[in-house]
């Protein structure tokens, strides 16, 4: 068991370091072709939107909606109406915790 745990830690360390390091290692300091700039500029909206929906509508490899889905949606409305981030987060947390308390 202890050996399994330490092998897991070692393995996770290596794969994480490689995944994070390979982009800068291959491309660091290079001039990028203009067309690639267009792709890089669109990475953030694509990846962030995917992170939002998977953390809101799924747990692991299953779709799941729950109290936090409602909380995030309410927080999203506040952000959409240009409310402050701190307020959006506070309301999302309160709504989620409140729904779980009564559920």
């Amino acid at each position: 068991m202890t050996a399994t745990i330490w092998w897991t830690i070692a393995g996770c360390t290596v794969v994480t370091a490689v995944i994070k390091g390979v982009g800068p290692l291959a491309l660091g300091g290079r001039d990028i072709p203009p067309r690639l700039t267009g792709v890089i500029a669109l990475m953030a909206p694509a990846l962030l939107a995917a992170l939002v929906v998977t953390s809101t509508f799924a747990v692991g490899d299953q779709w799941r909606v729950g109290a936090h889905t409602v909380g995030v949606a309410v927080g999203g409305v506040i952000l959409w109406r240009r409310g402050p981030l701190v307020l959006a987060v506070a309301v999302a947390v309160a709504v989620t915790a409140g729904l779980r308390a009564i559920g």
Binding site: L51, S55, H68, V72, A88, V89, A92, V93, T96, A97
Partner: peptide, 12 residues
């Protein structure tokens, strides 16, 4: 309700 924090941050 702390699991609602990250999605809202990322949504922002």
């Amino acid at each position: 309700g702390l699991d609602a924090i990250y999605p809202v941050f990322f949504l922002a």
